[in-house]
Design a protein around this nucleic acid. Structure first.
Lengths: 145, 145
DNA sequence: TCTTGACCTTCCAACAATGGGAAGCTTTAC
DNA sequence: GTAAAGCTTCCCATTGTTGGAAGGTCAAGA
């Protein structure tokens, strides 16, 4: 099977297959006499594994681990679980960071009248101009007991 | 004010200040006779704006817009709001993507016993091996009424 | 058999945003 | 006057991915 077919069958682009081979994530693919890569079913299987792992956000670095565990018949499932949980932690902190941004921005946007006038708390906040005014305004709108 | 002081005052690293100047996000900074950058208060103000915008996840591309609007005294706040809302949409889709990953992974991790045995649904799912077996097992562990 | 188009090969560049470091000049502090 | 700290530019690395150029190969049709 050549690289185009392997790409279609695995969901990994030809470019990325060459890259993964280059960085050693996948083993060297055997070649035909003319130098074309010749993929076995096993190769495609590995690529499909990678495709799924990528779609779950695992980095190439983490995939080294996962692939090694996958191919180790004596692995402990606790090792696999540890990789997964570590990745969940990473996802959690990314999600939190984005959510914080989102909330701040939404708050600002909600206080922007969004009309033809130039006055806008979003820019005001970014410029940190009239910070007290900002605080006052927020205080009036969200009074704390 | 030299670049080190401007960096401290704005929260943007010296490296990034040079980069932003290079790509035209900020205007050329004036120079002393010896070639050192010499930052005005206004320059620092702009840098602080950028620092805050970055912390809200705006890209350099979006900051071009925001800076232009900031400096346009005839802007319409609706234009600013539009940029903010567009960015919120981006954040939302990133968050959703990460949350989907997180959920899938957590589901798999929850079904992994995490002990010394090699059997693990996380690898099973990535390998897409014995998908029916997987489904059966999930069915046994989480019986649906 | 020759041609053509669709594939494959390698290598190089680019993206976005940031950090690291080298070589060399300037300023500051002692 | 010297040494340290800080500045300058320039190049490189990162992560994962795509694009393209130059050139070889394969398969189908004339």
């Amino acid at each position: 099977m050549n690289i185009g077919q392997a790409a279609k069958a695995s969901g990994v682009s030809g470019k990325m297959i060459r890259y993964y081979e280059d960085v050693g994530l996948i083993p060297r693919i055997s070649r035909t006499d003319s130098g074309y890569r010749d993929f076995s079913e096993k190769d495609v299987h590995i690529l499909r594994f990678i495709s799924r792992a990528r779609s779950l956000g695992f980095s190439v670095e983490q995939m080294y681990n996962l692939l090694a565990l996958w191919q180790d018949r004596n692995r402990a499932s606790s090792d696999v679980k540890a990789v997964a949980l570590a990745h969940i932690d990473e996802l959690d902190s990314k999600i939190k960071k984005l959510q914080d941004m989102r909330e701040t921005l939404l708050h600002l946007a909600n206080h922007c009248h969004g009309d033809h006038r130039p006055d806008c708390p979003i820019l005001g906040d970014l410029a940190a101009e009239a910070q007290e005014l900002e605080d006052q305004r927020a205080g009036q709108e969200l009074p704390e007991p």
